[in-house]
């Protein structure tokens, strides 16, 4: 595990993690856009609109250029985790969410082995941390792990899964956490800029209030 690895390899891996993180965020916002609209939460699709899919594909391609194994494992990990919660919902494929999740995880472990395991662990860690942060906002949410397990349990599990990822692949663990924060910041900037532009156009009467 503690091999001496070249700086180029680390930088490639960090960039790959960052771009895959962007893709995962776009995918997450795409799936949640109806809920976010109802809850009046900020969503990336209010800014990028129909550009979401091409941007996601471009970013995923870039991530693949830098490190295909890392980006593929992270993407499959996020997909498997996102689908795991849907026990009773049938997907367009005709399978239930958890069935898709099991298939994707099995395929990932078969082809990517330990990389897939570390990716799933870091995804679980990020998901738990996200749930912990949102626990005050949506306390009575059956899908919030901080509500289901308890706040302290949620934080401790976050730490455990992060350390497991760190044990398996420390570059991925650290770069994922940093990427998460950077992506959050970029999206916040984008949405703020968009909101200001929208307000400006609104005050100038260039867009209708309807």
């Amino acid at each position: 595990m503690w091999l001496i690895i070249s700086n180029a390899y680390i930088i490639k891996k960090i960039l790959s993690v960052f771009f895959t993180g962007m893709v995962i965020k776009i995918m997450d916002d795409y799936l949640d856009q109806d809920i976010d609209f109802l809850q009046k939460d900020q969503n990336l699709f209010t800014v990028i609109e129909y550009g979401g899919l091409p941007y996601a594909l471009i970013l995923l391609s870039l991530a693949f250029v830098f490190d295909p194994v890392t980006s593929l494992s992270l993407f499959l990990g996020s997909f498997a985790l996102g689908m795991a919660g849907d026990l009773t919902v049938k997907m367009p494929s005709g399978l239930y969410g958890y069935q898709e999740s099991i298939i994707v995880t099995a395929l990932g472990l078969l082809f990517l082995k330990i990389n897939m395991a570390s990716s799933i662990f870091i995804m679980i860690s990020i998901q738990l941390w996200d749930d912990y942060k949102d626990s005050d906002k949506d306390m009575i949410n059956s899908k919030n792990w901080a509500f289901l397990l308890g706040k302290v349990e949620c934080v401790l599990l976050t730490v455990i899964f992060f350390l497991l990822t760190f044990y398996l692949d420390y570059v991925k663990a650290i770069s994922s956490i940093i990427s998460m924060k950077v992506i959050e910041y970029i999206i916040k900037l984008l949405l703020t800029k968009h909101k200001k532009a929208h307000e400006f156009l609104n005050s100038e009467g260039k867009i209708s209030n309807a």
């Binding site: 302290v152 349990e153 401790l156 599990l157 730490v159 455990i160 350390l163 497991l164 044990y167």
Partner: peptide, 11 residues
């Protein structure tokens, strides 16, 4: 990891 897991279980 083992120490935190034991603490988590106890808690």
């Amino acid at each position: 990891i083992a120490v935190i897991t034991i603490f988590l279980l106890g808690y």
